[in-house]
Design a protein around this nucleic acid. Structure first.
Lengths: 241, 241
DNA sequence: TGTACATCAGTGAACGCGCGTTCACTGATGTAC
DNA sequence: TGTACATCAGTGAACGCGCGTTCACTGATGTAC
């Protein structure tokens, strides 16, 4: 068994949390970051906290969620269990912190949607760029997205909320494009269609290997996704029933 | 905390496992069901084993996967931990048994696909029936599908295989319909498109609540799904790039 | 039909590891004057 | 600039619960003759 460490400290960043409207972001309220025993963490403390968060992500990537232990995280971070409990009340809390950090990242993909044309041949290119952009996003945030997804489907409201926030920017941007392209002709609520399309992306990304058994190359699935997005945005006519 | 029990025994059914080709099914090889200490279970033993499987499903539905313990399962089944280890080597093994039972169930939806028309207005009705049929399927098998999905994305090959088997019938049936409808005009490999569409279904079903935050009624998302399936099957033209 | 034997089925009780969690303490850092 | 004090930061070591797991045993069931 190999020992995983996170000793190389990354640049210190202060955790950011999204406001409930999902639009603007503000630095964490100081009280929210207050350590469990009432101390207000300074530079050094925040760096340690951040290291714990990052080691958690690392462990989520290399072992199963079920096997994630507080002691493993502190061992990986080169610190002691007592330190962990100075910053997080339990495992779930550090997972929330992990998820919060991804909310910011999710907004970067918005420009892949809103700064593009979505009708005609250019629309297909845009769909392709969105798919590839998301696959890239997923590759770097796989452990986080997986655990957020799991805890969401298990019914935890806080993680459901965070999942919404992560996908929020993309979904709203895509809905806006749908409205632009289809106007009053839209037969389906643009937000619903956008939500379905964006929600499809992590699903696909997470099951890339799942197609092997059918001898389907993932390249073909990617083509399918591109078309589904294009269709969803442009809304081809569907026969009346 | 409430105590969950599974004492009311269901009719005894012998566990069925799918062959690796995913097509034909045979009763479990006797050796595969041999208890850990070498005994060959009879009627009574198989009933106990089945009760353990069903209590596992029950617990997966009422508490989180992370909190699932062997002792909880045996307590729910009204038996002792030692009995558990007579039929399963560990927790993972009983989860595999849980998943295997759902493989059979997944094939029931095949007729919702293959015994229907998929072009013209009837195609939209078929898409609707598939969506509703799947939502119903998900409702009754949510705990299982969730845990299979999780362990698949975590990279476990056995669960990935089982997930494939569960969705296998539907995917192949839908691919066949795509081929019928589009013929040589298909621009995307039918199995890839079918895999994308069928894979979308558990995703949607699992995140029904996730749309609340956006004030989208799930009914609208359902409409979006129906259209995406219709488009995927009929394959509207996409502009050349 | 009855008896004896083989095998299936189930479990009480215990063992021990590992993990969550805490306390009392030392060391580091910052700042007031 | 130096000293004293407050507060931040970190941890060694331990405690104890709970869970996984096993063993040696009793009871139930089936069947051979």
């Amino acid at each position: 068994m190999s020992v995983i460490t996170c000793l190389a400290g990354p640049p210190v960043t202060i955790a950011i949390v999204a406001k409930s409207d999902g639009a603007s972001r503000t630095p964490h309220d100081v009280a929210a970051l207050r350590a469990v025993d009432g101390r207000v963490p300074g530079r050094r403390g925040l760096a340690t906290r951040q290291r714990l968060v990052e080691c958690t992500i690392g462990l989520l990537g290399s072992s199963s969620y079920r096997d994630l232990k507080v002691t493993d995280i502190t061992r990986a971070a080169g610190t002691s269990p007592a330190t962990f409990y100075q910053y997080f009340v339990d495992l779930e809390t550090v997972l929330l912190a992990v998820a919060e950090q991804t909310v910011e990242e999710g907004q970067r993909l918005v420009e892949l949607i809103s700064q593009r044309a979505w009708s005609g041949p250019a629309g297909v290119d845009s769909a392709e760029a969105l798919v590839d952009g998301f696959l890239d996003f997923y590759r770097t945030h796989r452990p986080t997205l997986r655990v957020v997804d799991l805890l969401s489907t298990e019914g935890d409201k806080r993680f459901r909320h965070l999942r919404t926030l992560i996908l929020n920017g993309m979904t709203k941007a895509l809905a806006a494009e749908i409205t632009t392209v289809q106007g009053d002709a839209a037969e389906v609520e643009p937000m619903a269609m956008a939500g379905a399309l964006i929600g499809m992306l992590p699903q696909m990304a997470g099951h890339q290997m799942g197609f092997e058994a059918w001898d389907i190359s993932f390249a073909e699935v990617r083509e399918a996704m591109i078309r589904l997005i294009y269709w969803g945005v442009t809304g081809p006519k569907v026969p009346k029933r």
